[in-house]
Design a protein around this nucleic acid. Structure first.
Lengths: 203, 203
DNA sequence: GTCTATATTAGGATAGAC
DNA sequence: GTCTATCCTAATATAGAC
């Protein structure tokens, strides 16, 4: 049963997500969020007490969206190169749905006092098995030898960077046209896959 | 001859650079900049009239540092693959000197009303010859065939991303240790080069 | 050119009526 | 639960003495 409370809370969360994702914690204004949710500032505070708490709610939501993705598909018994392709696929698909996510997270992880650090520190233990598994694949000769950490960062960089730097890509590389940008970002799925495979397949 | 004016102006610029690079336009405080420059707020305004104008001065300075780099070395008569290696070398060297630059620019290019856009739009004409030259190298068979725009973004992503996402790399991939992070970033020079070369060299 | 003191505004937060 | 009105602090900016 949907009370009015639930309904308003959802409106607030939706509005806050939109605003915070684009402007970040420091750029966002409570007034703007209230306007977008078609309520007033006082009601924002009634539901979330403070800007910090509201922001934390949004940040947590987006983090749970972004981070757990890798692990899911990675530990199957498919050949390693296919698993890499799947990871790239999943990530680009996620980013096409949330293009502002990379810039948002980069902004946030470089902001002092961000709650993001609490979250980030825990992830160390989550990624160790992945690095280990990459090393195993290398030892089996499924992939060329290199430092697993650098492979991870290379894949992440190629997937994430064009989204974080969309405004530059759009205006510098393409000709300022939104539809060209969208097309370009969609192409990343296959482009990154092919590029990575060429770089890491044996011989 | 150095008047007191020059001296103070330099102190302000140095302090403002430090603060703005780390905190961005919205996170920085005039008081903090004044403190760092060992002067008071009023003097900041005496020299630069407003926070906006001061920020613009810093932004312009950093942009002129970051953007014109590529072109310089790119149009020599060296083999294409060697030129790519040189570009990577120059960029990673620049980033090791200014590790906060990527996050700063990503923050800024995603901020509405940023003066960065005026600058960014002009760069379209600067990069066209580079894309053309890449295409030529592909047609000559010096490199594998792909969309030049994606090659540029791949190189840029691998160079820039680990700097933009330093806090995450440090805590998630490495073990929260600053010296490990530094070592890792230095390794990027050779790692990126080798990775790119494997991905784009013919056959 | 540099300071202290003050004005001004913006923005987060609360009180209190309904 | 929702609103209007108001408070309070932080932050940019200016006035005016030295």
């Amino acid at each position: 049963m949907n009370t009015q409370k639930d309904n308003t809370e959802e409106k607030i969360l939706a509005a806050a997500t939109d605003i915070f994702m684009v402007k970040g914690m420091e750029g966002a204004r409570m007034q703007e969020i209230a306007d977008k949710a078609s309520i007033n500032k006082a009601l924002l505070h009634y539901y979330f007490r403070s800007k910090d708490k509201l922001f934390d709610a949004i940040l947590t939501k987006m983090l749970n969206l972004a981070f757990p993705q890798i692990g899911k598909v990675f530990f199957s018994d498919l050949p390693f190169l296919e698993r890499v392709e799947q990871v790239i696929d999943i990530y680009i698909t996620l980013l096409l749905k949330h293009p502002q996510l990379p810039a948002f997270l980069i902004k946030e992880m470089n902001r002092e006092g961000s709650l993001l650090f609490k979250f980030i520190e825990k992830q160390y233990f989550a990624i160790q098995p992945i690095l280990k598994e990459i090393q195993n694949a290398m030892d089996r000769g499924e992939v060329i030898q290199m430092k697993p950490e650098h492979l991870v960062v290379n894949v992440l960089g190629m997937c994430v960077f064009p989204f974080a730097a969309r405004p530059m890509i759009k205006n510098v590389v393409l000709n300022g046209q939104d539809d060209l940008l969208n097309e370009f970002l969609k192409q990343r799925r296959s482009e990154v896959k092919e590029f990575i495979i060429r770089a890491i397949q044996p011989q």
